[in-house]
Write a protein that binds this DNA or RNA. Structure first.
Length: 216
DNA sequence: AACTCGGGGCA
DNA sequence: TGCCCAGAGTT
């Protein structure tokens, strides 16, 4: 039993090492370390590429900096600024309402506790963890659809819901890898381990992957 | 659990 | 041109 666990630990570390080799430039996808600006950028990132979010926020933050600038915007004004990110009506309303809550309830500061963050409209489990990890340097593993799918295929988790996957990943991956691993798994999920037709034949992880072991 | 929001990416 | 998506909220 102990031997199996040791082998599994080694397998996880090998996976991480290969991911690091192949995706050396994985950084925080959204540039902003300022908690509020990261919050806005992360809300915008739903169902949208980070490349486009960065384009939009670069413009946006030249005009509007902090929650006081967003709180009094008319929804239509903000909608026009963020239209290219899609889902703009929801995102606009959520950003404005979150800005107001941050001003009224949190004295203009983005809260640094998970339970408070998820009270903000537009902030769910994934967004809250992105902010905790990247803006506040707190231990958190953000699980999005790519992380969820790829982790399960790799056998990093057998969880059927994002929360269980999150717990498994935090158990199995060393904490100083969490932010990087988040981006590695996303890149891999987009480039190779896609939802419908994963390119297992050319995958650099195929020898270590549960999904491939089971299917080939 | 299924539906909605939505412009952009990609085959 | 049609399908899908680096989520979250509502029913």
């Amino acid at each position: 039993m102990k031997e199996i666990c040791e082998n599994e630990k080694e397998r996880v570390l090998k996976i991480l090492k290969l991911l690091e080799e192949h995706y050396p430039n994985a950084t925080t996808a959204l540039r902003y370390n300022n908690p509020f600006q990261l919050l806005v950028a992360t809300i915008l990132s739903a169902q949208c590429t980070d490349k486009r979010v960065n384009q939009v926020t670069q413009r946006l933050f030249e005009k509007y900096k902090g929650p006081e600038d967003f709180a009094n915007l008319k929804p239509e004004e903000l909608e026009n600024e963020i239209r290219e990110c899609g889902l703009f009506k929801n995102k606009s309303r959520n950003i404005i309402e979150s800005s107001r809550m941050i001003l009224e309830k949190y004295a203009g500061r983005v809260p640094d506790e998970f339970e408070e963050l998820v009270k903000l409209p537009g902030v769910g489990r994934k967004t809250a963890n992105v902010i905790l990890a990247n803006a506040f340097g707190k231990p958190a593993f953000a699980v999005d659809t790519h992380v969820f799918r790829v982790s399960r295929r790799l056998g990093l988790s057998d969880g059927n819901d994002p929360l269980k996957v999150e717990k498994d990943l935090t158990m199995r991956i060393p904490e100083d890898y969490w932010i990087k691993a988040h981006h590695w798994l996303i890149y891999h999920g987009r480039r190779v381990c896609t939802a419908r037709k994963p390119n297992c034949e050319n995958c650099f992880l195929k020898d270590l992957c549960r999904f491939c072991s089971y299917n080939f």
